[in-house]
Protein backbone atom coordinates (compact mmCIF):
# COMPACT_ATOMS: atom_id res chain seq x y z
CA UNK A 1 0.00 0.00 0.00
CA UNK A 2 1.38 3.37 -0.89
CA UNK A 3 1.99 6.06 1.77
CA UNK A 4 0.97 8.76 -0.68
CA UNK A 5 -2.18 10.58 0.20
CA UNK A 6 -4.87 10.69 -2.44
CA UNK A 7 -4.93 14.04 -4.24
CA UNK A 8 -7.45 16.39 -2.77
CA UNK A 9 -8.72 19.54 -4.40
CA UNK A 10 -6.92 22.61 -3.08
CA UNK A 11 -9.30 25.21 -1.85
CA UNK A 12 -8.59 28.73 -0.72
CA UNK A 13 -11.50 30.34 1.14
CA UNK A 14 -10.13 33.81 0.42
CA UNK A 15 -9.88 32.99 -3.27
CA UNK A 16 -13.57 32.23 -3.12
CA UNK A 17 -14.19 35.54 -1.37
CA UNK A 18 -12.17 37.33 -4.06
CA UNK A 19 -14.04 35.47 -6.81
CA UNK A 20 -17.33 36.45 -5.22
CA UNK A 21 -16.22 40.08 -5.00
CA UNK A 22 -15.02 40.06 -8.62
CA UNK A 23 -18.30 38.61 -9.84
CA UNK A 24 -20.47 41.23 -8.14
CA UNK A 25 -18.14 44.21 -7.76
CA UNK A 26 -18.87 45.81 -11.13
CA UNK A 27 -22.63 45.90 -10.72
CA UNK A 28 -22.37 46.60 -7.01
CA UNK A 29 -19.88 49.46 -7.48
CA UNK A 30 -21.98 50.99 -10.23
CA UNK A 31 -25.18 50.76 -8.15
CA UNK A 32 -23.50 52.26 -5.09
CA UNK A 33 -21.85 55.05 -7.09
CA UNK A 34 -25.24 55.91 -8.61
CA UNK A 35 -26.78 55.88 -5.14
CA UNK A 36 -24.24 58.26 -3.63
CA UNK A 37 -24.49 60.52 -6.68
CA UNK A 38 -28.24 60.90 -6.25
CA UNK A 39 -29.88 64.03 -4.92
CA UNK A 40 -31.67 62.05 -2.22
CA UNK A 41 -28.36 60.77 -0.86
CA UNK A 42 -26.94 64.29 -0.90
CA UNK A 43 -30.03 65.50 1.00
CA UNK A 44 -29.81 62.78 3.61
CA UNK A 45 -26.09 63.34 4.07
CA UNK A 46 -26.77 67.04 4.48
CA UNK A 47 -29.41 66.37 7.16
CA UNK A 48 -27.08 64.04 9.01
CA UNK A 49 -24.28 66.58 8.83
CA UNK A 50 -26.57 69.36 10.02
CA UNK A 51 -27.64 67.29 13.03
CA UNK A 52 -24.06 66.44 13.95
CA UNK A 53 -22.92 70.03 13.56
CA UNK A 54 -25.80 71.28 15.70
CA UNK A 55 -24.84 68.96 18.54
CA UNK A 56 -21.09 69.48 18.15
CA UNK A 57 -21.27 73.28 17.96
CA UNK A 58 -23.36 73.43 21.15
CA UNK A 59 -21.04 71.04 22.98
CA UNK A 60 -17.82 72.69 21.84
CA UNK A 61 -19.15 76.16 22.62
CA UNK A 62 -20.18 75.19 26.14
CA UNK A 63 -16.96 73.34 26.80
CA UNK A 64 -14.85 76.12 25.27
CA UNK A 65 -16.49 78.77 27.47
CA UNK A 66 -16.06 76.63 30.54
CA UNK A 67 -12.37 75.99 29.80
CA UNK A 68 -11.73 79.64 29.07
CA UNK A 69 -13.17 80.72 32.41
CA UNK A 70 -11.29 77.98 34.21
CA UNK A 71 -7.94 78.85 32.62
CA UNK A 72 -8.45 82.56 33.33
CA UNK A 73 -9.16 81.79 36.99
CA UNK A 74 -6.03 79.64 37.12
CA UNK A 75 -4.05 82.52 35.61
CA UNK A 76 -3.13 80.38 32.59
CA UNK A 77 -3.23 81.39 28.92
CA UNK A 78 -6.41 80.40 27.11
CA UNK A 79 -6.50 78.70 23.71
CA UNK A 80 -7.55 81.99 22.12
CA UNK A 81 -4.52 83.75 23.59
CA UNK A 82 -2.14 81.02 22.47
CA UNK A 83 -3.59 81.18 18.96
CA UNK A 84 -3.21 84.97 18.86
CA UNK A 85 0.40 84.63 19.99
CA UNK A 86 1.11 81.98 17.34
CA UNK A 87 -0.45 84.13 14.61
CA UNK A 88 1.75 87.05 15.63
CA UNK A 89 4.81 84.81 15.49
CA UNK A 90 3.92 83.76 11.94
CA UNK A 91 3.51 87.43 10.96
CA UNK A 92 6.95 88.12 12.45
CA UNK A 93 8.39 85.18 10.51
CA UNK A 94 6.94 86.65 7.32
CA UNK A 95 8.40 90.07 8.07
CA UNK A 96 11.81 88.49 8.70
CA UNK A 97 11.56 86.54 5.46
CA UNK A 98 10.86 89.78 3.59
CA UNK A 99 13.80 91.48 5.32
CA UNK A 100 16.02 88.55 4.37
CA UNK A 101 14.95 88.88 0.74
CA UNK A 102 15.60 92.64 0.78
CA UNK A 103 19.03 92.01 2.25
CA UNK A 104 19.80 89.57 -0.53
CA UNK A 105 18.80 92.20 -3.09
CA UNK A 106 21.02 94.83 -1.45
CA UNK A 107 23.96 92.41 -1.37
CA UNK A 108 23.45 91.67 -5.05
CA UNK A 109 23.52 95.39 -5.85
CA UNK A 110 26.66 95.86 -3.75
CA UNK A 111 28.36 93.02 -5.61
CA UNK A 112 27.67 94.68 -8.95
CA UNK A 113 29.12 97.99 -7.64
CA UNK A 114 32.30 96.21 -6.50
Amino acid sequence: MSDEKPEKPDIDPFAQMIQFYDSISKSWASAMSDAVASKSFAESMSEQMEGNLEAMSFMRKQFGEFMEQYLQQMNLPTRKEVITMSERLTKLEMAMDDLDAKLDEILDILKTIE
Binding site: K8, P9, D10, I11, D12, F14
Partner: peptide, 11 residues
Protein backbone atom coordinates in the same frame (compact mmCIF):
# COMPACT_ATOMS: atom_id res chain seq x y z
CA UNK B 1 -14.02 18.36 4.43
CA UNK B 2 -11.73 16.80 1.91
CA UNK B 3 -9.93 20.15 1.72
CA UNK B 4 -6.16 20.16 1.74
CA UNK B 5 -5.01 21.43 5.16
CA UNK B 6 -1.94 22.88 3.52
CA UNK B 7 -4.12 24.96 1.23
CA UNK B 8 -6.10 26.32 4.18
CA UNK B 9 -2.87 27.13 5.99
CA UNK B 10 -1.55 28.96 2.95
CA UNK B 11 -4.80 30.87 2.60
Amino acid sequence: TNISGEAVQIA
